[in-house]
Every structure is written in structure tokens, then in C-alpha cells.
Amino acid sequence: MHEMALCEGIVEIVEEEARRRSFSRVKTVCLEIGALSHVAPEAMKFCFAAVAARTIADGAVIEVIELPGVAWCMACSRSVEIAQRDEPCPCCGSYQLQVTGGEEMLVKELEVD
């Protein structure tokens, strides 16, 4: 369950931002999660509730903006969208793909009080 460790990372980021920007409550934590990143958004929501309990982020809602997987196809020399790591180029069927986007795992914004 590496999602637990990642959620601990989110809580640490929120606590640092709270010290720096003086807020006392977090209503929403907005994440950007790429389709080819290491986490499932649903698992993050589940783990976050447990990890955030009794912290400044207690009760905060996780919102996830899902970003598409993007790869450069070396066979047809163009940027293509893929949903999974083991998918071929949707245009030419080649597996000669270099992932260029969709690996993001970011805390994008916080809605705070």
C-alpha cells in the first residue's frame, strides 16, 4: 500500500503550506494524477481519510484531476494518447513508445479557511 506513504507526503505538504501561509483548515485537496502514474485515485481517497485524521487536513475532501497518458511514438513520429503502460500506439500498433506525460502526482491546489 504505497498510497499510504504518498498520502503521508500530501499531509506533510499541507502542514508545511499551513505554517507558511497561515491557514487553519483545509476543505479540499486538489490532486493531479496522471493515468500512467503509480496510484489509483480511488485508493488515494480511501487512504487519505485515514492518514489525515487528527491533522490539519482532517475531513478534507480529495479531488482528483486525471491527466491522460501521452507517449511519443518512435515508429510514426507523433504524440499519442495511451491509457495504460502496455498499450501499443493507437495509430500504428507499435510498442516503440516513449512516455512523455501522464506520470504526474501533484498536489495542485488547496481550498483553505
Partner: peptide, 10 residues
């Protein structure tokens, strides 16, 4: 209430 953009890698 405000929204803060932070864009920090988890």
C-alpha cells in the same frame, strides 16, 4: 476561504 495553487510533487 481561498484557493491556493501550490503544484507540489507528492
Amino acid at each position: 476561504e481561498r484557493t491556493i495553487r501550490i503544484e507540489r510533487d507528492i
